[in-house]
Design a protein around this nucleic acid. Structure first.
Lengths: 212, 212
DNA sequence: AGAAAATTTGACCGATCGGTCGAACCTGTC
DNA sequence: GACAGGTTCGACCGATCGGTCAAATTTTCT
């Protein structure tokens, strides 16, 4: 499928996935939304999962381009610089593409979201973060008492809450900043980065100011 | 409805809610599971939401009893003692009642879970935590730059990841500890408490060991 | 015992679900 | 113009959804 029809279908799919979540999304509704006929859509995509994978594939590629190439850090200081750069790019990507962000939120509803047919997509989007966290643990920038995947899940889930609560708190929905766009986004990036640093820092680097 | 029938229905409902999540749970399936006839169940509960509320009400009451009464802290030091006691009781409750925990997880899938008909339930279960966080912000034990509800959402979501990942990582599911039950649970409690302390501590108390 | 009320039953309803399929329709080739 | 292959269409399928209802059954009251 190509051209305008494909675009219409993709948009309908993304809206449905974003509104109702991936699990509750109805393939029939997507087809109806797109204005295409049932036979046509089924001719190209056997089922909802097949369509979902295509949608994700597209988001995935854009995401990859937005993140670009980042080298792995070699020291503790470098680690947080790299992490900051990574966080910035990720957040900018989702703020600038709110619809895609909402689609992914519909996917994130379950904590362990690497089930079956989504595994490949999961791998592609988190590969760099996997490596970054592993390297962080090697050089002592990231606590070693949690499995790397758990560290990653913590980062994701915290970011998700901040998106839902803070962006919502400013009277915006879906990550759009109506006024002072750049300034607020910077502040938001710092919030995410700060939280993940709090969570990831090894016990021994934090002990100086704790009393238990 | 009373007696054995009620019990059967409640168990069927909890299992369905836990397995498929509250949104995807099917009222018809619950009725089928319970072995009761359709008319009977509809005679007492108009719809799925009505049944859900009753289930939650029961969990809610047990939860309240498990938590009991805790006084609000008056100093920073007291705050973390109270928080520790609260966390311990919450975690013990869910470890000892894994099914109820899974039902609530099915409810927690969306971050802002205080939608409409669940509001009353939400209020009842989080009232103490609301007060605790508010007091914490007053006495400077908890950061003031996030709205109290966001602080609470962060705590919930982090605890959820730890439950899913760590309990799962130890080869257990649903919060059951096969061996060394008490010891592991203590360790788990500490993990949760430590993470929430990292997240909640005000900026100025943490600044001594940060470099950005 | 018998009337009245409460409870139980499963057949039934329309809507929607994911999915199939034969007929019609283009579009290029010989 | 005949043919073939790729494409489009919407009627149709069985399953399941949430929900209704008249009739049968049990319980309660007089």
């Amino acid at each position: 499928m190509d051209g305008a029809k494909r675009t219409r279908l993709m948009e309908a799919a993304m809206e449905e996935f974003a509104e109702r979540g991936v699990e509750l999304a109805s393939y029939n509704k997507i087809i109806e939304r797109s204005g295409l006929s049932k036979g046509t859509v089924y001719y190209y995509f056997d089922n909802k999962d097949s369509l979902l994978l295509t949608v994700l594939d597209e988001i995935c590629e854009r995401f990859g381009n937005a993140i670009g190439n980042l080298g792995l850090p070699k020291t503790k200081e470098e680690y947080w610089e790299t992490a900051w750069e990574y966080h910035s790019r990720v957040i900018r990507f989702f703020v600038e593409n709110p619809l895609w962000g909402r689609v992914l939120f519909g996917l994130f509803k379950d904590v362990p979201w690497s089930e079956g047919y989504l595994e490949a997509f999961h791998d592609r989007t988190t590969r760099f973060l996997d490596d970054l966290i592993a390297r962080g643990q090697e050089i002592g920038a990231v606590r070693g008492d949690f499995p790397p995947k758990t560290v990653q899940h913590l980062m994701h889930t915290v970011a998700k809450v901040l998106c839902a609560d803070i962006l919502g708190h400013y009277g915006l929905s879906g990550g759009e900043f109506p006024d002072g766009k750049q300034a607020n986004m910077e502040k938001f990036m710092f919030m995410i980065h700060d939280l993940s640093r709090r969570i990831l820092t090894p016990e021994e680097d934090l002990i100086c100011c704790r009393h238990f």
